[in-house]
Amino acid sequence: MPSACRKLYWFNWPAHVGGSDTKFVHTLRLLAGEYDITVVPNNAGYLQDREWLDYLRGLGVKWCLPEEIPDRAEGWAISLCNGWFFTGGMLGGCVRRGLRVIWSSEMMWHFYGELGAVRYGLVEKVLYVSPVQRQALEPGYRWAASGMPGPPPGSFALPSGGPLPPGHEWWGTLPGGPGGREVPWITAGNYIDPAAFPFRQRGLPKEGGLPFTVGRVSRPDPDKFPLDFPLSYERLDLRKPARFRVLGWSQQMAGCWADHSFDARWDLVPAGSVPVAPFLDSLDIMVYDLGPKFRESWGRSVVEGMLSGVVPLVPRGGGHHLDQLVPHGLGGFLCDGPEDYRRYARQLQDDPALLARLSQGARKWAVKNLCGQKAHLERWHRVFSD
């Protein structure tokens, strides 16, 4: 097995909120028995967090501050979606200590300092989470690897659905030009431990007679919501009683929709105030439409919902990865516009047998096709191979 005994210094911190931080929670669970991992937070304040220190300790994972890494170190330094890794001097410290560096943006854009680090060989490998994200980021990495003179082009994004260069399905090497260097890449994906999201079959009577519930989980970013939210939910035209729940609310979100009267159907839950799994357990379907400025590089909360038995309704296409997660008609629905969201939501409310079948299908699909431990380990072993 490649690099199974290599030491990893991981420049992130686990958390209950945020795609990359929650991904880190599950990735540690996957890799703790495979690698010698030391978690390196941005500053000492994180080390006051007893919950996550206990979590790391239980996995046999160590931790230290950046300045506590030995002056001569071996192994890999890796960071996911942590802009401070570049701007806070941690990248330079890794290079000076002899660590080889791996970077994953996790987003659909490049972080400040990222392309320069790739260009000058400070970052040895780059990771993607999906082909959609690769389409957006690879032109920038190709420029960095090429060594071409001058500033990078103003826009790196390829058109939605544009072709990718030929190569292996999930790994390859970006060629280096004159004065440049080859840059290996791996699509590492997004591991979720199915055991963290217990399944409850929808379509059965609920305790306390709770009504049919539509909702979503996301970070409190207004761009992640459709322009016609919250009317996009209210115009689903569901039979009464029905309720709407959002986990990921904030003062900024409230300000964006200050003119809307959220009535008794609505439950707007602040980000991080409740655990995600129990919140998902309260939903029957997840309507996960997005704003025009936002492209979803993966869709972690959608898969968490599927594992829980929530039936997802997501946009088809649009430059998102979501239609690669949801099997249309088997474990959810792909929607081309408001009429599709409305039609499928009403079908699921009116037909408990359909809701139950898709609820089971969502869980089975996610476990088999999206959350397989063996497949994810194979990818991570390639990430840390020589």
Rank of each mutant, 00 (worst) to 15 (best):
V314P: 01
E304N: 10
D223I: 04
D284V: 01
P315I: 12
V303A: 07
G255T: 04
D259G: 10
F262K: 05
S261K: 13
D263E: 08
L283M: 09
V287I: 05
Y288M: 06
D323F: 07
R316D: 04
F225V: 01
L268I: 05
S218P: 02
A264W: 14
P292R: 01
P275E: 15
F279P: 00
L280V: 05
F294P: 00
A277K: 00
P230Y: 12
H320Q: 02
W257R: 13
F244N: 04
L268W: 08
S282T: 11
V214P: 00
S250E: 05
L231M: 11
D289K: 08
E234T: 15
K224I: 05
V303R: 06
D223N: 12
K240A: 15
P241N: 14
C256P: 00
G299C: 03
V287L: 12
L290Q: 09
L280N: 04
G299S: 03
L210Y: 13
S297D: 01
G309E: 02
P275T: 06
S250G: 02
R219I: 04
V303Y: 09
S218A: 14
P211E: 11
D289G: 08
S301H: 03
A242T: 13
W298F: 15
L247F: 14
G318C: 08
G305L: 03
V214C: 05
R219D: 11
W257Q: 05
